[in-house]
Write a protein that binds this DNA or RNA. Structure first.
Lengths: 113, 113
DNA sequence: TTAACGTACAACCATATGGTTGTAGTTAGA
DNA sequence: TCTAACTACAACCATATGGTTGTACGTTAA
């Protein structure tokens, strides 16, 4: 049986919406292999510091990343558990799909061997 | 090696944004197990027919569902391959995460056995 | 101590999103 | 044939989103 932990609709909305932007997916990918500061990140994109800061905030609200202060810097790292949540929902959808396909086979193929 | 097929940024944006709405996730789930008409779907939600029609259009543009005409009805069914795409990207992220964890182990644990 | 750095946040703008109502075109059925 | 059902789409509205610039404040280093 597939277990899908409960999550508020709003929380799932935020999760998928956070992933629906190329800059944010890029920030997320970077924070997966490094622990950059917000200005490290900002230096990599052709937009203002404030814009990158907002993207980081969206990822943080969605629970995909955390920040931790290090002097005047804020270091960004990913929250893998949260990332898995999106994956789990999609796996759940896929399991439903497979069930349906299995049922169709029952209908379309002769019973028994 | 994890294979992530190329997809335009915009296409991925549409895919995740389409999933970032509870009504649309519900429509998608329903279309996974049935092949409802647009008005079948509309009857299930507390919003206008036009609003549901718009949600269906968003899912269709994202490639997550298709419609096929049946007389005056439009029957909605899911495109599983497209749904898998979102899952693959998340799996890719997860593989990067696992690589990083493996590298950390190399650093934190003594070499050799 | 002072200047530069890193961050936070407000105010603003253009456009996108999610909803509505209304109009019109097809198809099915009495 | 005429009417009801199903769909499409335009016009409109409020709010959210993604960007900007400007200001303020704590921290670091010279």
């Amino acid at each position: 049986m597939v277990v899908v932990r409960k999550d508020s609709e709003e929380s799932l909305n935020q999760l998928f919406r956070a992933l629906a932007d190329g800059t944010r997916r890029s920030i997320l990918a970077r924070s997966l292999t490094e622990t950059p500061s917000v200005s490290d990140l900002a230096a990599r994109y052709e937009m203002s510091f404030a814009a990158v800061q907002k993207h980081v905030a969206v990822l943080e609200r969605a629970g995909l990343i955390q920040k931790r202060a290090n002097g005047r810097e804020q270091l960004v790292s990913t929250n893998h558990a949260r990332l898995q949540r999106a994956g789990e929902l999609l796996e759940y959808f896929e399991s439903i799909w497979r069930q349906r396909m299995a049922q169709l086979e029952d209908v379309l193929l002769p019973k028994g061997k």
